[in-house]
Design a binder for these strands. Structure first.
Length: 340
DNA sequence: ATGGTTTTTACTGCGTC
DNA sequence: GACGCGGTAAAAACCAT
């Protein structure tokens, strides 16, 4: 029980970098040839001062080494394959999987129908035959992808179900999780990632979306993949699917903790109230929501004369006692500050 | 890689049952 | 004496730069 809690609390809204770049990618293919020719012709000389040009592939600019003139802005990036190359440092992990071939579920063992309309001797097919082949191609493709994805889905849904019940998550969360998973599958987010990882990430996301969050540690506890992979996959999925998930609200942890500790409704209400004033006072930011919730529950129990020890709270919340102490001081201060 | 912030671990002293 | 509680210092973990 070393490492705990959901990090990346309020930073999660940085959904800034998501423009669909497909158009540009298409352009690149046709333009890259022309582009290189142009470069050669210009021989990298600055039109202003005649100095040598240097191209900055990070920014996609061509700059004069002498006078600093930006010759070409936003030029085509001729770097390898994916656009993620640009922001490799920033977002290293969110790379799409390797190009498929080897990773296809059937390892390429399923039927393939060639695209050329020729028979085994290389002769053109009659138009009737061509149509027939076209139909066969269509259906073959449909069946192949369908049953591979179906299989995949079946396994993933099984996992989601298993984990969800281990975490005591309600039906609707499971549904949400499977919807997320289906979308991930449909968007080809899977190649290069484990089914386990993605289903766990989907479940984690679903739980948060439904307002019944589980901490990363809890989720990792019932999953077969490690915490960091879950976190990574989770971020990836959230970004690619444009899921809107706010940082977890501390209040959403309260009911669970309260019931685990067998506290009265009164205390539970008090805890929410504490969190509300904390929010107003802005004690919030940067702190783990779980810790805040735990502290609120503890403080509330105290205020309502219900016996709970810090240790008990720290156990159900999976948070250290020290953190509870710190938070709960802040909570009480915030409350007093508001009421005076 | 580094620095800053938050959380955890480990240890201490104090009061109460 | 064990237990609950509070505080501190150092270490670890995380995020952002």
């Amino acid at each position: 029980m070393t490492d705990t809690t959901v990090r990346r609390y309020q930073r999660e809204e940085d959904e800034s970098d998501r423009e669909p770049e497909t158009d540009r990618e298409r352009e690149r293919e046709s333009e890259s040839d022309r582009e290189t020719e142009r470069e050669r012709a210009d021989e990298f000389v600055c039109p202003e001062c005649g100095g040598k040009l240097e191209s900055d592939t990070e920014r996609g600019e061509t700059v004069c080494g002498e006078c600093g003139l930006v010759v070409e802005e936003d030029e085509i990036d001729r770097g390898p394959e994916w656009r993620a190359f640009d922001s490799a440092e920033k977002d290293q992990k969110s790379r799409v999987g390797a190009p498929t071939t080897k990773m296809m579920h059937d390892e390429g063992l399923s039927t393939n129908i060639g695209w050329q309309d020729k028979d085994a001797y290389g002769k053109q097919l009659s138009s009737r035959q061509r149509q027939k082949m076209q139909r066969l191609r269509t259906w073959n493709e449909r069946f192949r992808t369908r049953d591979s994805k179906e299989r995949n889905l079946k396994q993933a849904l099984g996992e989601i179900d298993r984990m969800a019940s281990a975490l005591g998550l309600p039906e609707n969360v499971r549904e949400t999780a499977s919807v997320i998973y289906r979308r991930a599958l449909a968007d080809d987010l899977l190649p290069g990632r484990s089914i386990e990882g993605v289903s766990t990430a989907a479940l984690y996301a679903a739980a948060r979306q439904a307002g019944t969050p589980r901490s990363l540690d809890e989720v990792a506890g019932v999953s077969r993949v490690g915490k960091d992979e879950i976190a990574r996959t989770y971020r990836y999925v959230v970004r690619e699917l444009n899921l809107e998930i706010r940082p977890a609200d501390p209040k959403s942890y309260v009911p669970r903790f309260a019931s685990d500790l067998e506290l009265s409704d009164e205390a539970e209400r008090r805890a929410r109230q504490l969190l509300d004033s904390a929010k107003e006072a802005g004690v919030h930011s940067g702190k783990s929501p779980v810790g805040l919730a735990a502290a609120a529950v503890y403080a509330a129990a105290l205020l309502c004369n219900e016996k709970v020890t810090q240790k008990e709270v720290s156990e159900v919340a999976d948070i250290s006692e020290v953190t509870i102490r710190n938070r709960y001081h802040e909570l009480l201060e915030a409350e007093e500050g508001l009421e005076v």
